[in-house]
């Protein structure tokens, strides 16, 4: 059933695909984010209640949405790694976790900077804010666990397990504004009705959401490449790549010693 996915699980193939995709994804991400920011900051009208402070929405909402999106993809990768023992899925967990942690931190920080002028406080221990903070701790836990064991395999397994179990937090974050009384407003666009935001403000927001998604994909490609090289460093194809990087003159002191060492092999 998963036969067509098989070649992508081969580290060497995935390394090349990620290398192929990264420049495009990154360029698109930068362009979309730039457009969204310029549009959202200067070319939309101010909110009739919140004035210009609402412009924070153009980064707050995308970061918050993809802090959860990144967690879902990380948890899916962790599940695949645990059940089918696919190595690259395991490495993807480690590649995504720091990106998700940064997104969560951004959502929290921009939320605080928005909450201060609108609610009169930087922070309240309210359901949405607290569950998002727990998401940050989950990310940090996944990152910390993977390095906490002398046996790297065991650490990877523990962090994958935490990632999978932590999924229960996602619906809690999403529905927190409905289940509990909270300062945080309800869903504006991620609901099954017409978005309760004017189209002139919606477009830069949609671009922002697209931009954060592209950036997540791009950075995942970049970090996954590093993880693949690190974990496959004893394989012939990585050794060849490393030698090629020497020949291209990336390592300054390289050549003399290589010819000297050449006798040894």
């Amino acid at each position: 059933m998963f036969k067509w996915l098989d070649p992508y699980a081969k580290p060497e193939t995935l390394y090349r695909i990620c290398g192929l995709w990264f420049p495009w994804l990154m360029t698109l991400a930068v362009l979309t984010l730039l457009l969204s920011t310029v549009w959202g900051l200067g070319f939309t009208p101010a909110d009739y209640q919140q004035g210009d402070s609402y412009r924070i929405i153009h980064i707050h909402v995308p970061a918050a949405i993809w802090s959860m999106g990144a967690y879902s993809s990380m948890a899916i990768a962790a599940f695949i790694a645990l059940v089918w023992q696919i190595k690259v899925a395991q490495w993807a967990v480690g590649a995504i976790a720091p990106i998700g942690a940064v997104y969560t931190l951004i959502a929290l920080l921009t939320g605080m900077a928005w909450g201060k002028p609108m609610w009169g406080t930087w922070w309240v221990w309210d359901a949405r804010l607290t569950s998002e903070l727990i998401l940050l701790f989950l990310y940090l836990g996944v990152i910390a666990l993977s390095g906490a064991f002398a046996d790297r395999q065991l650490g990877a397994k523990a962090s994958a397990l935490l990632a999978v179990v932590g999924v229960v937090n996602l619906p809690i974050i999403h529905f927190s504004v409905e289940w509990w009384n909270t300062l945080h407003q309800g869903a504006t666009i991620t609901k099954f009705a017409k978005p309760s935001i004017d189209p002139s403000m919606l477009w830069p927001l949609v671009l922002g959401i697209l931009g954060f998604a592209l950036l997540l994909a791009a950075l995942t490609c970049l970090r996954l490449r590093t993880a693949i090289l690190l974990n496959e460093q004893h394989r012939p194809w990585v050794r060849t790549l490393a030698q090629q990087s020497v020949q291209q003159g990336h390592v300054q002191q390289g050549n003399v010693q290589q010819t000297k060492a050449g006798r040894g092999v």
Partner: peptide, 24 residues
């Protein structure tokens, strides 16, 4: 992320050279 990616091949190459030297 970019820095660790651009450094890793160099680091691996250095590691290989060291292995070669030790073996020689």
């Amino acid at each position: 992320s970019q820095r660790s990616q651009s450094r890793i091949l160099q680091d691996l190459a250095k590691k290989q050279q060291r292995e070669h030297r030790v073996r020689a």
